[in-house]
Simulated scan of single mutants.
Amino acid sequence: MPPPRKQHYGIKHASGSLIHYRPPVSAITQRRHSAVVPSVLTFAVIVASGGLLLMIEKGMLNSVETPPPRANGKRFARNNNPAADVESQILQEIRNRTIRSMCGQRNTPNSVWSLSPLQRKTLLQHVLVNDEHRFLYCYVPKVACSNWKRVLKVLTGALANVDVKMKMDHRADLLFLSDFSPEEIRHRLRHYFKFMFVREPMARLLSAYRNKLGEIEAYQRKYGAEIVRRYRKGYAKTRKIAGNDVTFTEFVRYLIDEDPERMNEHWMPITNLCHPCAIQYNFIGSYERLESDAAYVLERVGAPQHVRFPERQTWYRPVTKETLHYYLCTVPQKFLKELLPKYILDFSLFGYSLPNTTTEYCRH
């Protein structure tokens, strides 16, 4: 029986930050800061991590899939593809080495308690807990987190199976690390299996843009209308705006001006959500090989055989390479050059190649 849960956020501790994105005096200074400091630091780390930079530049990781590592030298029954298993272990080792190098930098927070209060609150509110199977899952919006929440609800008996037709309640019947006391948090971080899932950063942004600003009225009213007022010429500040026709370029300009630590969770950088330096994850799966990575995790945490990861819904519109290429090439390069540094850690730590948006490439 787990100890009683308490709501707790306000631990007083020395604060730290992977990258200080707090806006300085002017927006121009802030943009220059975010464009130079993260990029230089991160790529220096990549070089030190044993050749990942070369692989990123040549796009050699595009065909390499995210790893399901073996347990005690044995391959799990739910994932029995030897070739994929080898490729997975290679990428997992590259990721692990890069993260260790990055997290070894001075002033980098290496525990939950060395994060700033805001960073810690964000992290603890995104880590889901299952005490029966002893695991922690840091959920990242737009990386199949709704389906993972379904799985957690099935494991706790709140859902009969993952195929039950229902609107997802993202809070009900779920346990968050923020629900526990500091000592209870420390115990679970020390003894539970910890995992997260990542996705190519620009594909995740495009998915958020198409879903939240293209389909959901509440987001259109809250974010879409504000984006139009800020970045579209000719709109009176007092005019009522639906916010349902935001262009991708306008969305990018909005992201450039936002503080990553205060962004909406659907487009906040993954490193700001899950802090892979503050929590040493046992496994980092990827959206690009979701089926096999999810199968590995379910096997690893001892989920019953009848519990499976849900299939994608028939209405789901995937973000293809061609779709992403089209949208990125509609954005002026000067804006992309300001946007990418905000997500540079997501690219480098998780082994994703930077997008090619050169004029020549975009003509095709």
Rank of each mutant, 00 (worst) to 15 (best):
P23M: 09
P332W: 00
A225K: 08
G157Y: 09
E87R: 08
L177S: 13
Q119R: 10
A172D: 12
P4T: 05
D173P: 00
T238M: 13
S88V: 03
I344D: 10
C362K: 01
G351W: 00
E250L: 12
V140I: 15
K222W: 07
A27N: 14
D257K: 01
N80Q: 15
I279G: 03
L349K: 01
T359Q: 15
L136N: 03
I216V: 11
T357Y: 11
F347S: 06
N272K: 04
F251V: 05
P24L: 04
Q125M: 03
G224F: 06
Y223P: 00
I28M: 10
G302H: 04
R95Q: 12
R171K: 12
F283E: 04
H33V: 02
M166Q: 04
N272T: 07
L118M: 07
D259V: 00
Y137S: 10
Q305E: 08
Q313H: 11
L273D: 04
T247S: 14
V252P: 00
F248M: 09
V140L: 12
S348P: 03
M268H: 06
S146L: 15
T314H: 04
L91R: 13
T108P: 15
F347W: 09
L340H: 08
N72H: 15
Y139F: 13
K58C: 13
A242I: 14
C362F: 01
E132V: 00
M102A: 11
T66S: 06
E217D: 07
V64G: 05
V45A: 01
L128T: 07
R221F: 00
N147K: 10
I241Q: 03
F180K: 12
K121P: 01
D346N: 08
N107K: 13
H191E: 15
L53K: 05
A144F: 10
Q280E: 13
I256D: 00
E261S: 03
E183W: 11
E322Q: 09
P24M: 06
R78L: 05
M196S: 11
W315G: 02
E200F: 06
Y9I: 06
Q92F: 14
V252Q: 01
F350R: 02
Q313G: 10
P182N: 05
L136T: 04
W315P: 01
I216F: 14
W315N: 06
I227R: 08
S114I: 02
G243H: 09
P38D: 03
H133D: 02
N110L: 01
E65D: 13
L123Q: 04
K74M: 14
I270T: 14
E93Y: 15
S101C: 14
F350M: 07
T156K: 11
